[in-house]
Amino acid sequence: MVRNAMQVKSKLFQLGISPDYLCLLCGVATETHVHLFEQCVYSRSVLQEMATLCQITIPSMNILQWVWNQKWAKARKGIVLCAFTACYYHIWMMRNTARVELHLPRPAIALHQARCSAKMRINVLSSQLDLCTRSWLESIDLCK
């Protein structure tokens, strides 16, 4: 995703593989990497809900770069990156579900699955966190 190497519909349409170039999640814009992971209404709702859970306000573009540049503790930055990476993964999975199964699960389903994925990864590392970070993590319900 970071290298824009995923086979989005705009690429597939140019290769003659896809009959159209419209986003499988919203159906109104060209499915490019930027649209799919930053601009799509479906994706933005998932990302915005995760931001609300993490108690942060995200920018409209390049969320991972924005998180990386924050002056947060290393553990907090890693947790937020993990949460948004899980969102991106499940957005892609929902997009593939829409492509293969011809139905699109609600954004709440993608958010729930992203939270579960992030929780599993974070719980592996949670015993190594300081008390302040652990308290914040418990307040946003991304551990145990």
Rank of each mutant, 00 (worst) to 15 (best):
residue 1 M to D: 00
residue 3 R to D: 02
residue 3 R to N: 10
residue 4 N to R: 13
residue 6 M to L: 12
residue 10 S to K: 08
residue 13 F to C: 00
residue 14 Q to H: 09
residue 15 L to P: 12
residue 21 Y to K: 13
residue 24 L to I: 03
residue 25 L to H: 05
residue 28 V to C: 04
residue 32 T to Q: 00
residue 33 H to A: 07
residue 34 V to C: 03
residue 38 E to V: 07
residue 39 Q to P: 07
residue 40 C to N: 06
residue 43 S to W: 07
residue 44 R to W: 07
residue 53 L to S: 08
residue 54 C to M: 14
residue 57 T to F: 07
residue 58 I to D: 04
residue 61 M to R: 10
residue 61 M to P: 03
residue 64 L to G: 05
residue 67 V to F: 09
residue 67 V to H: 08
residue 74 K to V: 08
residue 75 A to K: 01
residue 80 V to S: 04
residue 81 L to C: 15
residue 90 H to G: 01
residue 90 H to N: 15
residue 90 H to S: 05
residue 94 M to N: 02
residue 96 N to E: 04
residue 98 A to M: 02
residue 101 E to T: 06
residue 101 E to G: 06
residue 106 R to N: 10
residue 106 R to Q: 10
residue 107 P to K: 06
residue 110 A to G: 08
residue 111 L to Q: 06
residue 113 Q to Y: 15
residue 114 A to E: 12
residue 120 M to E: 15
residue 122 I to V: 13
residue 125 L to W: 06
residue 125 L to D: 08
residue 127 S to H: 04
residue 130 D to L: 00
residue 130 D to V: 00
residue 133 T to D: 07
residue 134 R to L: 15
residue 135 S to Q: 02
residue 135 S to G: 00
residue 135 S to N: 11
residue 140 I to G: 00
residue 142 L to C: 00
residue 143 C to S: 10
residue 144 K to Q: 12
